[in-house]
Amino acid sequence: MIKRMLCLWLTVASPLAWSSVANLDALQTQLSQHDTVRGDFTQKRHIEMFEQPLSSEGQFTLNKEQGLLWQQATPFPVGLVLTQDKLRQTFAGQIPKVVTAKENPMAFYFSHIFLAVFHGDTDALKEQFDIAFSAGDNQWTLVLTPLNAPLNAVFEAITLTGNDNIDRLELKELRGDKTEILFTNQTHQPEGLTDAEKAQFSF
């Protein structure tokens, strides 16, 4: 459950010129520009014991106030809805399963850390990570190295790269496994949630 939630946290930056992202403060400002972002994702899970990665694709919607919608389409449909204190997971033809922050506080601890990444909360990040920012070759890179338990017991590093948007998120585990999430077709329009999206968050 915790690893699945860690893989959920994704977003994109605002359509500012790449040259304006010259340091960490500028990047965090850019990441916090918009209330809503939507797009497509391709996730590849590299497990050392398997020769080929496990792949999945779908669409996402991230809203600052409500949370995250993660709709996996292939290899089979899975719907995930994450709010501040609840997670609903739905497999095709099955009754949705809901987990609350009270039932699994550790999982939601991880989710709040990743919200800090995507909402530009630099102070919160500095409490949990050694942060390395670099920019060059028409892209920026942010490497987060966990400092404290429980993050440093699971991850070696978390790396985000992008240009106008966050294009790639990599979660590298201590045991050698790795998850890559590639983002495409990102948009901030419409800024607000649609009626259908609002309905998904009502549970």
Rank of each mutant, 00 (worst) to 15 (best):
L182H: 14
D137G: 01
S111Q: 09
P190Y: 04
A13S: 14
E197C: 04
F108V: 07
M5H: 04
K198L: 15
W9N: 12
W70H: 11
F183Q: 08
P53D: 12
Q28G: 00
L169F: 08
H112Q: 14
Q71F: 00
G79R: 13
H46P: 00
I47P: 00
Q189P: 02
W140A: 03
A153Y: 00
Q52Y: 08
A199L: 13
I95W: 09
T194L: 10
F114T: 12
N185K: 12
H112E: 14
L24M: 11
T90E: 15
T90G: 07
P150G: 03
A107E: 09
L10T: 14
W70A: 02
N165K: 11
Q30H: 11
H46I: 04
V12P: 00
Q72R: 14
D121E: 11
V37D: 05
A196C: 03
A132D: 15
A92H: 11
L68I: 14
G79F: 08
A135D: 06
T100I: 03
R4N: 10
D164A: 09
Q33S: 09
L193K: 07
N165D: 13
A73R: 15
E51W: 00
D164L: 10
L8C: 12
A199R: 11
L147D: 08
P77V: 08
P77W: 08
C7E: 15
K44W: 11
E48I: 06
M1R: 01
S55L: 06
K102R: 11
I166H: 02
A149L: 13
V37S: 13
V117G: 02
R45A: 10
E173N: 01
L10I: 14
V37A: 15
I166M: 06
D121K: 09
Q28A: 06
H119C: 07
W18I: 15
L144T: 01
I131E: 02
Q43Y: 04
T161R: 09
G79Q: 14
E191V: 08
V99C: 04
A73S: 13
D121V: 00
A149M: 10
N152E: 08
L87C: 05
K44G: 02
N63E: 13
F41I: 05
E57Q: 14
P15H: 10
D137V: 00
V143G: 03
T11P: 01
S55G: 10
E103S: 09
H188T: 10
E173T: 01
G136D: 07
G58A: 06
P15Q: 13
L16W: 12
T74Y: 09
L62N: 07
E197V: 06
T61M: 06
L80H: 12
V143A: 12
H112K: 13
K172I: 02
S56G: 07
L54E: 12
K3C: 02
A153W: 01
A13M: 07
K178F: 03
L31M: 08
G39M: 07
T187K: 05
V154H: 10
C7A: 15
A199Q: 15
